[in-house]
Structures are given as C-alpha cells and as structure tokens.
Amino acid sequence: MRTRDGLWFYVFISPWLFGFLALTLGPILFSIYMSFTDWDLFQAPHFIGLGNYEKIFTRDPLFWKSVGNTVYYAFISIPLGMLLSLWIAYYLNKKLKGISFFRVLYYLPSVVPVVASSLLFVRLLAPNTGLINKGLALVGIDGPNWLLDPDWVKPALIVMSLWGVGGSVVLLLAGMKGIPHELLEAASIDGASPRKAFLFVTLPMITPIIFFNLVTGLIGALQTFAQVYIVTSGGPDNASQMIVPYLFENAFKFYKMGYASAIAWILFLMILLLTLLVFRSSALWVYYEEGRKHG
C-alpha cells in the first residue's frame, strides 16, 4: 500500500515535476553555462569564462545606469506608494455611507493591463496637450516636459505607478478588518482620537501586510519592463533605461544570449540580496501577534 501510494504521489505531481525539470531546472543550468559564453544564436558558443561578468562590472556604463535608474524608481515609488496606500486605506476603512463605491473606485486602476495604462499615460503626460499638465496649469503650475526631459522621466513613471496603488490598499483594508474590536474599543475608552488609534493600534497590527506589500512591490519594481518599453523606450538619453528592458534588448534585439544571461543572474542576486535585507529588517518593525501559530 505504501509503495503504491508513493507511486500515486509521483503521478499527481508529474505535471509540475516535468515542467520543473524542462522549463526551470534545465534552463537554469543552461543559463549559467550560457552566461560564460559569447553565444549570439547564430554561431557556435565560445566559452569565455567570466568575460561577460567582467564586461558588465568594468566596461558597461549603460548597465550601471539602468541599475541606478531601477533603484531610483524602486526606492522612491515604493515608499511613496506605501504612504499613499496607508493614507487611502485610513479613509476607506471608515464606516461611511457609500464607502464600498469608493473602495471599488480606488481599486479599479490596479486591474488595468499595463499596456493600456502605459499608452494612456503617454497621453496623460504629453507636455502641451496632456491632461496632467493642463490640470497643473489650472492651478498655476507650469508642468515639466515629463517623458521628454531626462530629469522628469523617472518621476513620470513613478506618478504612473501610484495610479495602481489600489492593489495594496485592498490588502491593507483586509488586514484592518482582522484587527480585534476590543483593541480599538480599549483605545477609544482611553481617550485616543481616531488618528492616534490608527497610528498606535491599527498601524502596528497591519505591519505584516505592509511588509508583504513591501516585498512584492520591491520584487515587482526591480523587474519593471512593459512601462519602460512602451512609454519611454528607455529614453531620453537612457534616463529611464532599466535592468529588464536592457536585458531584453541584449537578448532579443542584439541576440547577445550569453551577455543577457549574465545580466539575468546579476538581477537575480540583486533581488535576492534586497529581499533578504527586507526580511532581516522585519524583526525590527513587523509586529506578529503573540501566540499566533507560524506555519
């Protein structure tokens, strides 16, 4: 019976196991090997040892520019997004008539496919005719050239990312619903204002959700692709070039498969390192209820 059960286990997991071997493990090993070659898809690969990595680290300023841009984008859009989502969640958590209408309204932008939102923001951010600069002009601000200005193209992409903040708001709201009523009642009996109760009771209780948003947001931001590809093509003057579009260009425009593989591994290490840092930091600021089972 046991051995037959064992067989059944492998029958059931066989789709995943096959996919893992053929589309994950195999490609990983192949990618490691490729990253040590100069393969261009047309001629036989030459083993060049650490050549690709050496070039990336010493002779490829454009790669480092795209790393810098990606980090700039991640390190500003994520904290801004977290603050904005908390602020919105604070209001959406109030017991008001018609609040579910507002919840849907704030969530909607986050389900718009990135191709559609990217093209929409090309229009919204147009310097003279775009809606954003027209709106700014109404309040007397002379809007920047956004996508055409190397100093403003990254802020433009950050503004775009903030439109989709509703996805993390939903999770925060779910976390807020899970807070025991006694806690908030106790705070209000002790004379805490709603704002103080939010800061000192609600906020600490939802740090696990904030942490989750931070980790997924970080990984997502480091992998930014479609926005750059569609909205800016990395320009102007490479001011919005990021790691994944740069990798994509190397692989599928120049067919430098070896070089692109090396970039992919550096990206993997960056993601791993930053995620580990965030996990490490969580002991300092993420609050887990005592007695909660960690499974």
Binding site: W16, F20, A22, L23, T24, G26, P27, I28, F30, S31, M34, L41, I219, Q223, V244, L247, A251, F252, M257, A260, S261, A264, W265, L267, F268, I271, L272, T275
Partner: peptide, 20 residues
C-alpha cells in the same frame, strides 16, 4: 523545491526557454 522556485525571477529562465 517547489517553494524555492518561486524565488527565481522569470528573467533567468526567459532566454533559455526562448531557445528551447
């Protein structure tokens, strides 16, 4: 093993998969 594959970004397997 299954859980740890979630940590691998798609970009790593993208190029070899294209070749396959």
């Amino acid at each position: 093993v299954l859980l740890s594959t979630m940590m691998i970004p798609g970009e790593v397997t993208m190029v070899p998969q294209f070749i396959i």
